[in-house]
Amino acid sequence: MAILVRLDRVLLERRMSLTELADRVGVTIANLSILKTGKARAIRFSTLDALCRELGCQPGEIISFEPGPVDFADEDEVEYGGA
């Protein structure tokens, strides 16, 4: 995906750990880790609002767009078993 999450950089600049941020914004470390590693499919405005408030930054500092090949392969990753 061409959307990049720069949460690790912002955290480094603020000298804040992921655990502390998770406590402050009320999102689990696992979910923040998904967001940080760019595995998230979407982000709620409420989450973005909490992140910007606690990190004292603009949304553009956390997420950015970099043109490149769009990879939608992960959209069909659901495995339909059960038979």
Partner: peptide, 10 residues
């Protein structure tokens, strides 16, 4: 598919 999408919505 929507369930998986919701799971990865933070």
């Amino acid at each position: 598919r929507l369930r998986q999408e919701a799971e990865l919505t933070i």
